[in-house]
Design a protein around this nucleic acid. Structure first.
Lengths: 249, 249
DNA sequence: GGGCATCCGTCCGTGTTCCGTAAGACTTGA
DNA sequence: TCAAGTCTTACGGAACACGGACGGATGCCC
């Protein structure tokens, strides 16, 4: 199984890191793929393969969100859903068989917060989970603006400036820059970045290399001799300002 | 008017506890689920299953807000809505059936304070009820007029002008513009807009694309090279004016 | 009541932007 | 000097945004 590219993991999702997700599906393959994607996006995932296990796990874990297959061995998914609702108000995303539009309607009317038709792309699932969680947290509350030296980065407007001049960053470049700006003076391996910024579990590391280079092209005065977004040989990259923070090598 | 952002995380929802909500829907399942969610959020809920009962209950209860299904047995939902408006200014959230295509309610929806397309997530309904109520509290003035640059937008009269000249905006265009004016310098995905402005939880995103284009046609000097309603590639749209980030409205 | 204009949602063709990958040149550290 | 790691460049394809147009539905006017 290879990780598909292009997860628009716009990093306004850092508040979501560490949130607990309970994944209920009886198909081991689906469960494994889905949970690995969710984990890659920073969620803590617990799995359950039938209705009883789901209810128990829900009590024990008190998850922030539940992904629930509508078709389950033993108790039906909808029934599990009702019982869940009786004791907690945790948001639920329902996985429904394709085609059966009635399922979806029934699901939403029963109180699901979202639904996803099987077969679904894991990436889509991650997006939905993030979307539902973000909504339940509080929507459209503008994120605070990052200021660092002459750089200014507004995540809500997705505008980055240096000395008041706007930097024409692309989506990936912006996400990458935002992450680095939030964690200055800290070294990240390419794998770290690929996981946190891209949301991939594994993949071609050169992707990171190239994007770092492109970002340097836009934020460094002399991209050939970077002073802020520097390379730590054999380890990764680090964003620093003020120049003197790199004494230790 | 359409929608405003939901629930600030610092939930100033304490003021809303105990507010009376009249829920009008003939589908017992929908009514039950919705009302249980509303009650769980601290509202006092009364239900009515047809138009007459709704009007009577409205008189008797003097609710703070009414959730009204457009499709009702007996009197049509819209008719109920008109009669309600004749005697009281209670805010109304309209539930519309999206599935049945014959439901283009464009005309009178304009008077509703918010609308939500079925099927919807109950959580979404709660968010909207809170949002509308919070807005209506302390706002005895009909509705504040939005001014932004040379634009002036009167939600009550549904009139938009640029430099004193009226802009012939359609219903959707007005709603869209209003939402963007209320949240300047912030990027919204097509999905965000579809959910908040249209009240759809799911739908064709190209709908948003097209309406943005039509709106640009009317507010931009050069619609081909938009300067205010700009596209953020891979993310969504943003309304900005002149460089000044005076986000206070 | 019929015809007309308006508005809305959808679809399709087209051009553009951006991203991921590969391959070769270069640099670093031993 | 050598090998591993890093940088640079280029390219193909995919995702995306846009314009144009169409059909259906509604409201209005005659």
């Amino acid at each position: 199984m290879s990780v598909s590219p292009a997860a628009p993991s716009s990093t306004g999702n850092e508040d979501l890191v560490g949130r607990r997700v309970l994944l209920v599906d009886d198909d081991p393959t689906v469960a494994e793929v889905a949970s690995s994607y969710l984990r890659a996006s920073g969620f803590v995932v617990e799995e359950a393969s039938d209705g009883f296990a789901a209810l128990q796990a829900a009590d024990r874990l008190a998850p922030d969100l539940i992904v629930l297959d509508r078709m389950l061995p033993g108790i039906d998914g909808l029934e599990v859903f009702r019982r869940l609702r009786e004791r907690m108000s945790t948001p639920v995303i329902l996985l429904t068989a394709l085609g059966s539009e009635d399922d979806r309607i029934a699901g939403l009317e029963a109180g699901a917060d979202d639904y996803l038709a099987k077969p679904f792309s894991p990436r889509e699932l991650v997006l939905r989970v993030q979307s539902v969680l973000r909504r339940s947290i509080g929507e459209f509350t503008p994120e605070s603006v990052l200021e660092y030296g002459e750089f200014r980065l507004d995540p809500s407007a997705r505008v980055a400036t240096r000395g008041g001049v706007e930097l024409p960053l692309t989506l990936r470049e912006f996400d990458l820059f935002e992450f680095l700006l939030k964690h200055p003076n800290q070294v990240f391996s390419r794998e770290d970045l690929l996981r946190t910024v891209w949301g991939w579990t594994h993949g071609d590391l050169s992707t990171v290399t190239v994007h770092v280079r492109r970002l340097r092209e836009k934020i460094e005065l002399d991209p050939r001799a970077p002073t802020m977004l520097t390379t730590v040989w054999g380890v990764g990259y680090r964003f620093t300002m003020g120049g003197a923070a790199d004494a230790v090598v």
